[in-house]
Design a binder for these strands. Structure first.
Lengths: 199, 199
DNA sequence: GAGCGCACTTACCGATCGGTAAGGGCTCAA
DNA sequence: TTGAGCCCTTACCGATCGGTAAGTGCGCTC
């Protein structure tokens, strides 16, 4: 079946793009991961950019799903919803660091392209978190810029940590980093509560 | 003079590595930025890795200089010193986003290599910030893991924002992002004071 | 002014890149 | 039994990659 091969190719491509980036990943390498030739890959995706674009599209849909899901699981309380959204992003990024890696790479590689695209694929995510933040009692009088700065601090804290995971484990050891990983969501939660609470 | 050419090659290489990554940067491209052939570059640096390594070495030395400088400019007050260190890193990353981009790329590309290197070139930076944090009254009873989590949240907030600058400007416009950039150090300062203060 | 070495060139190498062209084997319908 | 179409193959293309080998011109020393 073509559909199954397509899925497996996309999975292999996601792994390799995350690991080695767009330039560092060859079509032959992706196809080889399934025991196929690169022409089999080119049969399913006409160009390398098409393959990459499809990987990105699925990632962005999935991230948005994480955010929406966390948001809906909570009631209308903005602080709780914001907390759950950030923690859900943190959990997702820890469970599957590939996604974080690719998002970061996209930020680095295609900042020129992304800059001209008003509708960057992560923008809905940013806008939703910022809106949630401004709905919190502690930030009710915050300007867009102030709320956005806080959004980015939260997002940066989540994503940067996820991207660093493997390096940190190598540096400090598995045990020490397990402790840090346990402390991380608690610290995130505390930070959100401090800045979201009234007063 | 050889030394001057070497410096200019390193500067060009830094720009291109930041922009397109290790795999996406060719020796011919770096040399071409100076109007030279790639063999001129290979005369000064025997291998591509040697060029890249030298760029990394200078960046790490410079970052450590920023941290040490900010630390020494302050008195023995840990909260003030920590604040100044983080803000100095923020200013440096805003002034010269290339450095941030390369550090992030290194995190993504060489996590396997970096993981086996116990002395990753950014480790002193992490350790110093963590030590500063634990010297703050609000964190005096924090474990290493707890303090390290906070360190990484601060660092992530600084670096992720710097790496995103160009994309964000393209998405939200120059004016809006100028406001955010103005709000950012204030938000960082507030966050540090909240978590570092006694109580 | 002959010789020497520094800084750089042209010429070339094999490997690998993304992508095209053409064909082969398989299934299934008529 | 034949023909169509799907999925994948081998064969090949020009461009570009990092890197080697062998000069070349220029300035300096003796």
């Amino acid at each position: 079946m073509a559909e199954e091969t397509r899925e497996r190719l996309l999975a292999a491509a996601q792994t390799l793009f995350a690991e080695r980036g767009f330039h560092g990943t060859s079509l032959a390498h992706v196809a080889g991961a399934l025991g196929l030739t690169k022409q089999a890959l080119l049969y399913h995706f006409k160009r390398k950019e098409e393959l990459y674009g499809e990987v990105l599209r699925r990632i962005s849909a999935r991230l948005l799903g994480v955010v929406r899901g966390a948001q809906e699981a909570q009631g209308p309380d903005a602080v709780e919803a914001l907390t759950e959204v950030i923690l859900a992003l943190h959990r997702a990024s820890q469970r599957d660091p590939q996604v974080t890696r690719i998002v970061l790479r996209e930020l680095l590689d295609n900042h020129a392209r992304a800059a001209s695209a008003k509708d960057w694929y992560l923008r809905p995510l940013l806008d939703e978190i910022t809106a949630l933040l401004r709905a919190c009692p502690g930030q009710s009088r915050a300007s867009f810029a102030e709320a956005f700065a806080l959004t980015y601090q939260l997002l940066g804290a989540v994503e940067y940590f996820a991207a660093s995971g493997e390096t940190l484990r190598g540096m400090y050891g598995e045990a020490a980093m397990a402790e840090v990983a346990a402390a991380y969501p608690k610290a995130l939660r505390r930070q959100i509560q401090r800045l979201a609470a009234a007063g």
